[in-house]
């Protein structure tokens, strides 16, 4: 289940002053938004621990030189492993791992429903539970990556439910943890990732409507910094606003 990832790459991380260097934990690090987040953070000189479903040898080329652990967050063992391997002190934890299918309920299977709810909702809840001590020690920020589908989406009811659950959990937890750990829920719009492809969003129009993954990753990182609201959406409008004003979405 567990592997550290010793890939060497040549671009040395920027040397940040100690007070600018942050300790991050990112789930869903092996692909999609999580991978792009890890690349950006590593290039900026932050200390990143990534978790993902893929084995270390199956990681994509260009995977950054960060600590990486394989963990299947659909299982309770995977959630336990996350809490065990996490740094003892965290500035930022980004619970980003997610999966989903673009299909109506009549084409869902009980197993797929269980998996989506387990990975998208139960796993981040368990991870938040396990990471509380480390986040409190670092007076850190917990980021839950949701989706704009959290308000309901006819084409993906189970996925929408899981992300709404995350939103409701984060809203109440933010109040519980106020003054100790800053909890935020970040809702990206449809993003051009492997998940979107696997979810069935493959038409040319759908492709054109989707947000570029690097821009979304930068938006997610910006949403984790500074004073932030509880709920932050990442859309074309928000990305544009961020470009113009330099402020988070």
């Amino acid at each position: 289940m567990f592997d550290t990832h010793p890939i060497q790459d040549n671009d040395q991380p920027l040397q940040l002053p100690p007070q600018g260097r942050q300790t991050w934990l990112v789930t869903g690090a092996s692909a999609g938004i999580g991978l792009a987040v890890c690349q950006i953070l590593h290039a900026a000189g932050h200390d990143v621990t990534g978790f993902g479903r893929r084995q270390a040898q199956d990681l994509p080329a260009g995977f950054p030189d960060i600590a990486y652990h394989t963990a299947d967050l659909a299982t309770s063992q995977g959630c336990d492993l996350l809490a065990e391997r996490a740094p003892r002190r965290l500035d930022r934890a980004l619970l980003n791992a997610g999966l989903g299918h673009y299909r109506p309920l009549c084409r869902e299977t009980p197993q797929a429903i269980n998996d989506v709810l387990a990975v998208n909702l139960l796993a981040p809840i368990m991870a938040a539970h396990g990471l509380f001590g480390a986040l409190q020690a670092g007076q850190g920020v917990l980021g839950l990556v949701g989706s704009v589908a959290y308000r309901g989406a006819a084409g993906m009811p189970v996925y929408a439910a899981s992300k709404a659950g995350l939103d409701g959990f984060g809203r109440s937890l933010r109040s519980e943890w106020q003054g100790r750990v800053d909890v935020r829920v970040i809702h990206p719009g449809p993003t051009a990732t492997g998940m979107a492809m696997r979810a069935g969003l493959t038409s040319p129009l759908a492709q054109r409507m989707m947000l570029p993954v690097d821009a979304v990753a930068a938006g997610v990182i910006a949403a984790m910094q500074g004073q932030g609201r509880m709920r932050q959406r990442i859309s074309f409008g928000a990305l544009l606003r961020h470009k113009i004003t330099g402020r988070a979405a």
Partner: peptide
């Protein structure tokens, strides 16, 4: 929101979105 019952609140919000979607 429901501080003190965050997991409960999350589960119930999931049902609202599920019903809206269906």
């Amino acid at each position: 929101g429901y501080p003190g019952a965050s997991v409960y609140a999350g589960g119930k919000d999931a049902l609202v979105a599920f019903a809206r979607s269906l």
